[in-house]
């Protein structure tokens, strides 16, 4: 499909906002890390007797859930569709 790009296409200074196979592999890896870290922090928070440690652990849990959502957003079909439309109109179908 890349062969079908018009020859007169402008030279890009940066890669288009399309996920590479490597991006996808790293994203799914990182999502697993974040989920595990969030679960661990939450589990530890529930076991802590020291309130400061408990609070810190819960903060970490929330941060990892936030990070998870940021990463997941890059895999969303809406976003991918949007990317494909603006960058490679001929990419799908």
């Amino acid at each position: 499909m890349y062969r079908n790009q018009p020859a007169q296409q402008q030279r890009r200074s940066q890669p288009p906002p399309i996920l590479s196979t490597k991006d996808d592999a790293y994203l799914t890896d990182a999502l697993s890390w974040e989920l595990l870290a969030a679960k661990k922090a939450h589990s530890f928070a529930s076991q802590c007797s020291d309130n400061q440690v408990k609070y810190q652990a819960e903060q970490l849990c929330q941060m990892h859930q936030r990070h998870y959502n940021i990463l997941l957003n890059h895999l969303s079909t809406d976003r991918q569709q949007q990317y494909a439309d603006q960058s490679y109109p001929h990419f799908h179908n």
């Binding site: 890669p15 288009p16 906002p17 996920l19 991006d23 790293y26 890059h74």
Partner: peptide
């Protein structure tokens, strides 16, 4: 270091 596009 391995990401492709700027947003990511």
């Amino acid at each position: 270091r391995e990401t492709s596009h700027q947003d990511l």
